[in-house]
Simulated scan of single mutants.
Amino acid sequence: MGHWLERNIIEPGKLPLLLALTAFVLTFAITRAITRLIHAGKGPFGNVRAGGLHIHHVVPGVVLTVVGGFGALVSRQGPGSGFFAVLFGMGAGLVLDEFALILHLADVYWTDEGRKSVEVVVLTAALVGLVLAGFAPFGVNDLSGDEVQGRGSVIATVGVNFLFSLLALSKGKARTAIFGAIVPLVAMVGAIRLARPGSPWARRFYRRRPRARARAGLRSYHHDRRWAGLSRRAQDLIGGRPDPHSTGLPDHR
């Protein structure tokens, strides 16, 4: 483990990225735990207010992200780079935890629309983890022949997988395309299977094929019925269950 850390994290200069990712995940987890306690009316926590205004945690998140980002640019690889990386990770965790609020310009934290925040956080953590795990095989010196061949294979695999992800995206499978960038088999399956109705692929290639359009619609319906419940349960486990019939009105937390 120590050798892997030295070769793949410290030597390529990815230690600040590891610190930022750790701070990002911990900040999101702690923030969700606190907001769930507030929402349930438990614990010593409460909403932050100033002059009757509800201060969402995206506000300090923006401040930390700006300070951490500019600080990291100034410090580069200096001793302060790790400190500013942690600040940036904390700020990004706070900001993306309220991504849905920014997207909708409304307090939708405990609504179905608020689930987008959980999706974005999970995706961000997965992509950064992908880089840290060595799938961005750059910056390591003195590679052996086997290591060069292995990393070259990784680059080729990532390139081909990227094409599959683009094809899946053209078929209207945005989540499959995004997570397919992490798991190659997912992108391949998304690229091979029928396109979703209304996608650019379906409009282009199913226009004169009514049977294909019907099959695509039926498959999309069954797919959504099969996986929607599982996806919602996973999001509820991570971020908490939204309020039933919530309309996203201000200060409903």
Rank of each mutant, 00 (worst) to 15 (best):
K171I: 04
E6C: 14
F99T: 12
G51A: 03
P44L: 04
Y206M: 01
G82H: 01
A216F: 00
L53P: 07
R193I: 15
L19M: 00
G46P: 11
S117D: 08
S117P: 02
E119V: 12
F138M: 00
P200V: 14
A214H: 07
G46Y: 03
G198C: 08
E119D: 13
S220Y: 12
L123V: 03
L123D: 02
D146E: 13
A23K: 03
I30F: 10
G114R: 07
G78I: 08
R215W: 03
P210L: 00
R225E: 00
D236G: 07
F70M: 13
P184F: 14
F205D: 10
V160I: 07
P242E: 09
T65L: 07
V63Y: 09
K14N: 07
V67P: 02
V108R: 05
R196N: 07
G190P: 06
P210I: 01
L18H: 04
L127E: 02
G150V: 00
G248R: 01
L103Y: 15
V74E: 12
H54A: 11
R36D: 12
G114P: 04
Y206D: 03
K14W: 04
V120H: 06
G145T: 06
G229L: 00
M1V: 08
V59L: 10
V118H: 03
K173F: 01
T35C: 03
F83D: 11
N141E: 15
T111N: 01
D97E: 04
L132R: 10
L21G: 01
R32I: 13
L143F: 00
A216R: 00
F70T: 12
L143Q: 09
A136R: 01
P16M: 09
P184R: 06
I238S: 08
V74Y: 05
G13S: 02
V120Y: 12
W4G: 14
G190S: 01
L26A: 11
G78C: 11
L96G: 08
L103Q: 15
Y109Q: 06
V58N: 08
